[in-house]
Design a binder for these strands. Structure first.
Length: 723
DNA sequence: ATCTATGGTTTTTTT
DNA sequence: AACCATAGAT
């Protein structure tokens, strides 16, 4: 253990300074279970990390005795970073991580007891779905009647409740069939030595509940368990925590019921009330002072969330009263909404606000397209968070599948993915034969393939050759070898025509994969292939380069939780989009959407824009939407409408309320040009109007050209064509 | 066996 | 608009 730092606790002056009374109370609480109700922007992360630092530096516990759980890798990383800044300790060996990451760690350490192969691999949701499809085909189940996606939700959902197939109550034949698939799926995963996300948790839970000595060992070790975003825990996670806490340990849970936005994934806010009961919690501390947002923003958020029932009750306040009003903009179309936003961003930029200080939020990933397009035309740099992650790209998954198969030949999923990619003359017919043979002999596909001849045995030979050629190589070189000898590189290089560009990007990504491997080897003690593959599954999205650039943040509202920005744009505030249509089918769905809106609003420190469009492209066709009902739930006197309300273009739509007309911004000026208009110039080429001055032919316009940059042009001379 | 065209379906949010 | 699965063409 590290030297006792608790001889001279300097934290009373530095560590604890600046905490408000409830924060201080939470941080210095004696060892007992507690629930900290921490509102948005109330210093939740600070309290959590400071408490850990406090416990360690006062000698209450050694770093070894702490278990800190978060939901995202980002949050875990943040905690570690802050902690190392507060304390001169090595955070490396500490158990700080996500539920999935920690369970993985535990299962790796006790793989035998958990009945898993040492190098078990993790299926991401895509892998899981294809595994399920495979099972369904084998069981000859009609995928019209049983959509694979639904099956996936059923299986994951059951696991998140802590239910194995035989635990699920099936009263009707329909459900019984699903249970069959669940059971068969689990058996298949076991055969192949793979686990899905929820299996990590369930397997870990079962391991601890069955194995008393192991359970006791960890219970005695983790004297203090701290959980972030407790409102997002599902029943299984809660049971897992209970198990580790045992009778004697303290569970320090931090959460905000108003920010519970993952019920669709099995999260159960009810866990907060259960915690109070199960742990006989006496310390409920509310952090209600918000240090983030101006008063108007907070007032709007509070007004909105007050429409929800069954809240634990919290009153968020700030000493920063007032501030700007919330700006609301109604655009005719999604494209014009995007152009408006671009205009505002430019303005904010000239006022000195950095792009990184601004965020563009939307309800669903598909909405980023239009926004991105406008940003590209305007030459503004941005960064999309979430969406398709690096390790989820098909070329990356293909490359990794080779590695997985090389390491674990039982992995049928991996084999099927690459046996004919790139194409090597093994078609559907051959694959079927292999599957039949495997079934008949009761072996894995790999063994069946090894028995076959011709092209199939050539494939088997290829994998084996790669394995022996790379067995002694460091990770990045293994990677390179596989990329070349699998034929992936050549395959993408030979792509031409329409797919050329796409293939080039894929090649770039493959190169990037080698870089990622190199980086991984440098940063991790355990630089084994298994470890890297685990990293790829568990931290698929964390791979973000160029964070230091001044770039705008684009992300879903979900992804924005926990973040804050000086200026925030909430876009697509239309009924059926936000709140989302599908939420109406679910019990309590609207309340969850409202909490989501609450999260969105409370991301903003100073300025908040909310916009919507009368018309937008949705699923490939034009749709007309009414303004989001959430806008009506915001106090009118906190809002500033930026657009005059035009008559709705849709004769069938009638928006039930009107707002005071405000000066129109970005309207067509007397020059005949308006900002956001795409134009063509004979010499400079394509561009977008970003500013208009003067009137008639005396005026001039500012155009940002794709290639020639930004220029002011006198209308009298410049020949501009509208695009 | 593989490529291409077609048509039907789809997307909410994610560790 | 993009993705997928399947049928038909090569």
């Amino acid at each position: 253990m590290s030297a006792p730092l608790w001889d001279n606790p300097p934290m009373n002056t530095t560590l604890l300074s600046g905490l408000n009374p409830p924060q201080l109370q939470a941080v210095t609480l004696p060892r007992q279970s507690a629930l900290i109700l921490a509102g948005a922007g109330s210093g939740k992360t600070r309290v959590l990390t400071t408490r850990i630092a406090y416990l360690i530096s006062t000698g209450a516990v050694s770093p070894h005795g702490i278990l800190a759980v978060t939901f995202t890798n980002k949050a875990a990383k943040e905690m570690v970073t802050r902690l190392s800044a507060m304390l001169p300790i090595n955070t490396r060996g500490m158990w700080i991580g996500t539920f999935h990451g920690l369970c993985n760690r535990l299962l790796r350490a006790h793989y035998r007891e958990a009945a898993l192969p040492q190098t078990f691999q993790i299926l991401d949701s895509g892998d899981q779905l294809s595994a399920i499809k495979r099972i369904m085909k084998a069981l000859e189940i009609d995928d019209e009647k049983y959509p694979p996606r639904e099956m996936q939700n059923f299986i994951s959902g059951s696991k998140e409740q802590g239910l194995r197939a035989h635990d699920v109550e099936a009263f009707d034949p329909y459900t019984r069939r699903k249970v069959d698939v669940y059971a068969e799926y689990d058996a298949q995963c076991q055969r192949e030595g793979v686990v899905d996300f929820s299996e990590l948790l369930l397997r870990c839970f079962e391991l601890l509940s069955r194995n008393e000595s192991l359970r006791t060992h960890y219970q005695e070790r983790f004297h203090h368990i701290l959980v972030d975003e407790f409102q997002d825990t599902n029943p299984l996670q809660y049971q897992w925590l209970k198990l580790l806490a045992g009778q004697h340990n303290a569970l320090f849970a931090v959460g905000d019921d108003d920010q519970s936005i993952y019920a669709f994934r099995g999260a159960n806010v009810g866990n907060m009330k259960d915690l109070l009961r199960d742990f006989k919690v006496e310390a409920v501390i509310k952090l209600e002072q918000n240090y983030r947002s101006h008063g108007n923003i907070l007032d709007a958020a509070n007004a909105l969330i007050s429409n929800n029932r069954n809240r634990l009750g919290k009153n968020l306040w700030t000493s920063e009263q007032g501030g700007e009003k919330l700006r609301v903009y109604e655009a005719p179309t999604d494209v014009e909404e995007a152009n408006f936003i671009v205009g505002e961003i430019r303005q904010l930029k000239t006022e000195g606000l950095k792009l990184t200080e601004m965020a563009l939020l939307y309800r669903s990933n598909a909405q980023s397209r239009v926004l991105e397009h406008a940003l590209v035309s305007a030459g503004l740099s941005y960064r999309v968070y979430g969406g398709l992650r690096f390790f989820e790209r098909q070329e990356i998954k293909h490359a990794l599948a080779y590695l997985r198969l090389m390491q674990n030949t039982d992995d049928d999923n991996a084999l099927l993915r690459i046996i004919n990619y790139p194409t090597r003359g093994i078609g559907a017919r051959s694959i079927e034969q292999i599957q039949d043979s495997a079934k008949m002999h009761g072996t894995t596909l790999w063994d069946a393939a090894a028995r076959a001849g011709g092209k199939v045995s050539a494939f088997v030979g290829l994998i084996e050759a790669m394995r022996s050629a790379t067995s002694a190589l460091p990770l990045p070189e293994i990677m390179e070898h596989v990329l070349v000898h699998s034929g992936l590189i050549e395959h993408y290089q030979s792509e031409k025509g329409a797919k050329k560009r796409e293939a080039e990007e894929r090649l770039e990504n493959l190169k990037e994969l080698v870089t990622a491997a190199t980086l991984f080897v440098h940063e991790n003690e355990d630089d084994s292939l298994t470890s890297f593959l685990t990293h790829a599954s568990l931290e698929a999205g964390e791979h973000q380069a160029g964070d230091q650039d001044d770039a705008l943040h684009l992300m879903t509202v979900h992804a924005a939780k926990g973040l804050e920005f000086n200026a925030v744009f909430i876009t697509g505030l239309e009924e059926n989009l936000f709140p989302h249509q599908n939420s109406q089918r679910v019990d309590g769905g609207l309340d969850e959407e409202r909490r989501l809106m609450y999260v969105a609003i409370t991301r903003a420190r100073r300025r908040l824009y909310m916009s919507f469009a009368q018309r937008r492209m949705l699923n490939g066709q034009v749709s007309y939407g009414a303004p989001s009902s959430f806008l009506k739930e915001l106090p009118e006197d906190l809002l500033q409408w930026l657009s005059a309300r035009e008559a709705p273009r849709n004769p069938f739509a009638s928006f039930g309320y009107s707002a005071p007309a405000a000066p129109v911004q970005h309207s067509v000026s007397s020059t005949g040009w308006r900002t956001g208009q795409r134009v063509m110039h004979l010499k400079f080429g394509e561009g977008v109007i970003t500013g208009v001055e003067g009137s008639g032919t005396d005026g001039r316009v500012q155009v940002n050209f794709k290639h020639a940059g930004s220029k002011w042009l006198a209308l009298e001379y410049a020949k501009l064509t509208a695009l």
